[in-house]
Computed example of a mutant assay.
Amino acid sequence: MENKNEKKLKEAFLQWDGTHTAYLKNLYQENREDPSFIPITLSLFETEAAVEVSSSWVLKHHVDQGGTLSPDQVAQLLNKLDGLRFWESRLHLLQVIPKVALTAAQAEHLEPTVRSLLSSERAFVKAAAFAAYFEIVELFPELKNEFRLLCEDSLDKVSASVRVKIRRILKHLQSEKNG
């Protein structure tokens, strides 16, 4: 059963027009000091498909603003990646991955899903997937050479925005190899 805060927050997420993030930024600003805000947002993200995109955006924004998530909250968030319905929420979660401390178990669980998103039709998702996969590869060095080859092979097949991300990753992989 929803409590009053959860119902109010769900209604606020449902009022978002799907385009203007100023509304979501304002919602975040108004509620960020409330200790129940992030847990409720995470709960709504997990259970309410109608607010999947808006709640994932707010959770990403929270992390972008230096907000923290507990290890359990990170696990809760990341466990949802392979079941997301919307490309925008996949993008938001992929963008969170480089900003949170992944455990080896989480990385192992995420690996097949993130790997599949490396070939997404959406350039932003693809770019974010490369950055997220790099974080996974950091925990599993045995994947580095294969990932480097995949990055090199992808360079001439992707849009300019994805190419920039891949070149940065290749630079990191090269410096690690030399360092």
Rank of each mutant, 00 (worst) to 15 (best):
L118D: 01
L170V: 05
T68K: 06
L110H: 01
V164F: 09
L143H: 11
D72H: 09
S154Q: 07
W16S: 10
V58P: 04
V53Y: 02
T47D: 09
L24Q: 06
L59P: 06
A128I: 06
K4C: 13
P39L: 06
W16I: 09
E2S: 11
A12P: 05
L173D: 00
W16N: 09
H62C: 06
L155T: 04
K165H: 07
K25R: 14
L93R: 05
K177R: 14
L84E: 00
V63D: 04
V96M: 08
S161G: 12
S43H: 13
M1C: 11
A105Q: 13
E88V: 10
K144A: 15
Q95M: 11
L81M: 01
A12T: 04
K99L: 08
E138D: 06
V114D: 03
I166K: 03
T47H: 11
N5C: 11
P98E: 00
K7S: 15
V51G: 01
E6I: 07
E152Y: 04
L78T: 04
A49Y: 09
L84D: 04
G67D: 00
K8H: 12
K4G: 11
K144M: 12
E152Q: 15
S43K: 15
V63E: 02
E138S: 09
A101H: 10
A105K: 15
L93A: 01
E88C: 08
R115C: 10
L91T: 01
L59T: 02
T21I: 10
N3C: 11
V114E: 03
E152S: 13
P39C: 07
K8L: 14
S119G: 15
E52H: 05
H61L: 14
E11P: 05
N5S: 14
W57G: 02
F130C: 04
W87E: 12
E176V: 02
E176R: 11
K7C: 09
F140Q: 13
A131V: 14
V51M: 02
S120G: 07
L81E: 02
P98W: 01
K157T: 06
S43L: 12
Y133P: 09
I97H: 00
L24T: 01
S154V: 00
E146G: 12
D153P: 07
S43R: 14
T103I: 02
K126Q: 15
D64F: 08
L69V: 03
E2M: 13
K8C: 09
V158G: 01
K177H: 13
D156Y: 09
K126P: 07
F37V: 00
K165S: 12
Q73H: 05
F45D: 03
L143G: 08
S54A: 15
T19V: 15
L42D: 01
L91P: 00
K7H: 12
S70E: 02
I169T: 04
A105R: 12
L14Y: 10
V100W: 05
F130G: 00
K10Y: 06
V58F: 04
P71F: 07
L155A: 02
E152N: 10
T68I: 08
A131Y: 10
T113P: 06
N3A: 08
L77H: 04
L78C: 02
